[in-house]
């Protein structure tokens, strides 16, 4: 029952947003078509900019997987990971997602490509990646811009929130997709 509602909201959220945005734009007499083209250009730029990062990370993680490293780690941590229902392939994602947005996107693509888009690993990673921001990048940019040297409790708060995000992602994915 709850799952049906969640699926319904998931399916309708994007069309509803598109509709609201377009209707609002028409009412406000915005040239919606030209504005769309303008924004789409930015979108193309984003994906071109991201390509070198994707190559760097996808190649590195593909190498890591092919090397059998995950099999070794799996044997080492099998007990804990099994108990938490966390696939070993998600481990690097947990650490990198706070450091680099393009890197974590590369790792996620690699997982989706390797396990298929509808596998549990891919869905868990999708939630983990989609719900996070790159904490250390944000810290550097925002505090760097005004010359703050002492982060005080901001750093700890960011790290705690990241950990809660990982736990929540695992919980929600287990609840809905396992």
């Amino acid at each position: 029952m709850i799952k049906t509602v969640i699926d319904l909201i998931s399916a309708w959220l994007i069309p509803v947003i598109i509709l609201v945005v377009l209707v609002w734009g028409i009412i406000k007499r915005i040239p919606v078509y030209e504005t769309f083209i303008d924004g789409a250009k930015d979108g193309l730029k984003v994906s071109v900019d991201i390509l070198p990062y994707l190559i760097a990370i996808i190649v590195a993680v593909s190498m890591l997987r092919a090397s059998g490293f995950f099999d070794i780690t799996q044997q080492l941590f099998a007990g804990v990971l099994d108990w938490l229902k966390i696939p070993v392939d998600v481990l690097p994602v947990m650490f990198v997602r706070s450091l680099s947005g393009s890197a974590v996107l590369g790792m996620f693509s690699e997982i989706a490509n390797n396990f298929g888009p509808d596998s549990y690993v891919t869905k868990l990673t999708a939630i983990m990646v989609g719900s996070s921001e790159t904490t250390f990048y944000v810290l550097a940019v925002y505090f760097g811009s005004v010359g703050i040297k002492k982060f005080r409790h901001a750093l700890l708060a960011g790290i705690f929130a990241d950990i809660i995000g990982i736990i929540a992602a695992v919980g929600v994915a287990r609840w809905l997709f396992l």
Binding site: I17, I18, V21, L22, W24, G25, K28, I30, V32, T35, F36, I37, D38, G39, A40, K41, D42, G43, L44, V46, S47
Partner: peptide, 14 residues
């Protein structure tokens, strides 16, 4: 990405 950012540009401009 191009499609989504196109839509979002309308949200911003309007």
């Amino acid at each position: 990405m191009a499609f989504w950012l196109g839509i979002m540009k309308i949200a911003e401009k309007s």
